[in-house]
Design a protein around this nucleic acid. Structure first.
Length: 299
DNA sequence: TCCTATGTTGTATG
DNA sequence: ACATACAACATAGG
């Protein structure tokens, strides 16, 4: 589930672990989530250390650990099915490692657990006084000042032949955006996910930027802080539903693979490439506005 | 049994 | 070289 807001929410789930010394570390060293890292060094560094701070950016989390002898940094990416939780109770006596609990930090009266059924998640690790390069080199946050409409426009001009859906999923420019957020953004922007980035007008690029920023901010607010159910006015609550209909038009939503991912879009709101919007539910194919050719209406 | 899944990456292709 | 497409990864659930 984890995209921008969910990652922030999962980060906070480890808050109860902050300030408490790690008494032991348990992990599944052969699990794919540890690919490319020295799990023995990880255990040695975390054992006896205290998590003192955490942060989330994009889909990445960072936990800072302190020991009398030095600082280390634990990075966690949740992949597709990763979750963090703290299990209260008398340490390991009350806690039996579940099948996919791949990293367990044992503390005095609780365990901090990273679980991931599909193993697409990833653990990163770094020792040193300053945060690691993989953290500091993350692209500018969507909700920050550096994410301007010019940044989005420049990127669209670069990825001219990529469908918008694929463009929004490019983490190098849209850090933290995932499948549902991309669909939500395009739906709100009134842009068809198969439109090529290079086909956007200045106004459309600005709209794309605006809606990207809005959805990211709202997701952080509504999911990152409390994980409240999103309003039914969002596409989110309808996109997987059976007999799904657009909350704006009431018309049936379309699901198809675009940009390599299952995509949900609304025919009445998002004119396909080569069409333009005429009325609320009516699209005209071909040509430019004013040069209408064939006319058809979606269900 | 077959299909799906809120992600990333390595490799093939244009 | 550069951009884009897609299979592969591993598991569970409908």
């Amino acid at each position: 589930m984890p995209e921008l807001g969910e990652v922030e929410w999962y980060r906070k789930r480890w808050d109860p672990a902050l300030g408490h010394r790690v008494q032991a570390v348990f992990l599944h060293p052969r699990c794919r989530i540890f690919r490319g890292l020295d799990t023995e060094a990880l255990v040695n560094a975390l054992d006896g250390a205290t998590p003192v701070a955490s942060a989330a950016r994009a889909k990445q989390m960072l936990f800072e650990f302190r020991k009398t002898r030095g600082t280390c940094w634990l990075g966690i990416h949740l992949g597709m099915s990763g979750k963090l939780r703290v299990v209260k109770g008398k340490a390991f006596e009350n806690y039996r490692s579940a099948k996919h609990d791949h990293l367990v930090l044992l503390q005095e009266n609780q365990c901090a657990v990273f679980t991931d059924t599909r193993h697409f998640g990833r653990v990163l690790f770094h020792q040193g006084k300053t945060p690691p390069e993989w953290w500091t080199s993350l692209p500018p946050d969507i909700v920050g000042d550096a994410f301007t409409t010019e940044v989005v426009a420049a990127f669209c001009r670069r990825r001219t032949r990529s469908p918008l859906k694929a463009v929004l999923l490019m983490q190098e420019r849209f850090p933290g955006i995932g499948n549902w957020m991309a669909d939500e953004i395009l739906w709100r922007a009134g842009l068809h996910p198969a439109r090529h980035a290079g086909s956007l007008s200045e106004a459309e690029m600005r709209t794309l930027w605006k809606e990207t920023r809005w959805v990211a901010r709202e997701a952080l607010k509504r999911i990152g802080t409390k994980w409240k159910r999103l309003p039914d006015s969002w596409l989110f609550n309808h996109r997987w539903a059976k007999g799904r209909t657009c909350p704006k038009t009431g018309a049936a939503l379309v699901r198809e693979k675009i940009g390599g991912r299952t995509t949900c879009w609304s025919p009445g709101c998002q004119p396909p490439p080569g069409t333009f919007k005429k009325g609320p539910h009516e699209l005209v194919q071909g040509g430019r506005p004013g040069h209408a050719a064939k006319k058809f209406t979606y269900p």
